[in-house]
């Protein structure tokens, strides 16, 4: 049997078929200022120009050795297509949601699931995915990122109001979540059709630090499960913060990869995860952006030795992260992997 391509390795790990050697794919955001310069593709333009988006994403593989290409670089694509006002951000800050269109039942009813081939930046992400697919000759995993139902619901309603609705109007929460779920299904299926090899669902607002395990299990997990059921490719689920208390529920959604924050201990996490791949969890700030060479090396080693299956940062890479630091962790990971 010949060497696996990077894409095959990633997919085999997620399918639970080859779990011997970790992959160095990054299912989370990879845009950095240095890579923007190298690829001449800068934020905020690279959020809305397919060619720039694809170039910046490809640059992560080309210049750092990250074993994947991932788009987009923000969490606002779906929200914008649904009428949220977006602040474009700049070189170091991602676009963010300014105004939330859902104030009551009526305004929710007025929203329709966007057409990913047409609406706002959705087709830009799709086009970037197809470009990457072509450039990489189907050898590198192309990862499409979509925002999870709870975070999207927070974008639509405003997270503060959404959390108060838990008590004031629980039925409305379910309605917004159901609608958000439909948007996730439509957009992730579209990205698959455009050639994405795997979907990362990222739902930062669903963190235990915000809503707690009970509400996650009741409101969010079943909907993520419904989304994953519709996917043809293996999904990775990322939730920020200390998710130890919901890891079992995250796995039950059917996600094949569970991406953990640096706050979660890998060995503890492994005791909760029965058959999914563990993705993580280098500290993106203190280690990857600000840490010394030694710190990056020792943390990367620890990730592998504790049993992470996909060696990646615990959250999106921060734009100020030096390329050298990324190259560093990738090289350490590859070296150790070679000896396994």
């Amino acid at each position: 049997m010949g060497e696996l391509t990077l894409k095959e390795r990633y997919l085999h790990i997620l399918e639970g078929r080859d779990i011997e050697r970790p992959s160095c794919a990054c299912p989370l955001q990879t845009g950095t200022i240095e890579l923007m310069k190298k690829t001449d593709s800068f934020w905020p333009q690279a959020h809305s120009d397919a060619l720039k988006m694809a170039r910046l994403s490809f640059g992560a593989w080309k210049y750092t050795g990250i074993e994947s290409a991932r788009v987009p670089f923000c969490l606002t694509v779906e929200a914008e297509a649904l009428g949220c006002t977006i602040k474009q951000g700049d070189l170091i800050s991602q676009p963010s949601v300014q105004k939330h269109p859902v104030s009551d039942k009526k305004s929710l009813e007025n929203l329709a699931v966007p057409n990913p081939e047409k609406d706002k930046r959705m087709p830009v992400i799709g086009t970037a995915v197809s470009m990457l697919k072509e450039w990489t000759d189907d050898k590198i995993p192309i990862i499409g990122g979509v925002v999870g139902p709870f975070t999207l619901a927070g974008h639509l309603r405003g997270i503060g109001d959404l959390l108060l609705d838990f008590f004031d109007n629980p039925g409305f929460v379910e309605e917004i979540l159901d609608f958000s779920k439909e948007v996730c299904i439509s957009f992730s299926n579209y990205l698959e059709d455009q050639g994405a090899d795997s979907i990362t669902i990222i739902d930062p607002s669903a963190t235990t630090e915000l809503i707690g395990p009970e509400d996650f299990k009741r409101l969010v997990a079943p909907r993520i499960e419904d989304i994953i059921k519709t996917l043809k490719t293996p999904a990775v689920l990322h939730i920020c913060g200390d998710t130890t208390a919901i890891l079992d529920a995250m796995e039950k959604t059917g996600a094949r990869g569970i991406s953990i924050d640096h706050l979660v201990d890998i060995e503890t996490a492994k005791t909760y995860l029965k058959n999914s791949a563990l993705v993580g969890n280098i500290n993106p700030i203190d280690t990857l952006m600000l840490g010394s060479k030694e710190k990056i090396e020792s943390e990367t080693k620890a990730c592998i030795l504790k049993g992470a299956d996909i060696i990646a940062p615990g959250c999106g890479i921060s734009p100020k992260t030096p390329t050298e630091n990324i190259v560093n962790y990738i090289n350490v990971a590859k070296k150790i992997r070679g000896k396994l």
Binding site: G160, L163, L164, F167, T208, E209, L210, G212, D215
Partner: peptide
């Protein structure tokens, strides 16, 4: 971690 942000709000 006995209550979460919804209760705080």
């Amino acid at each position: 971690r006995e209550v979460f942000v919804p209760q705080i709000l």
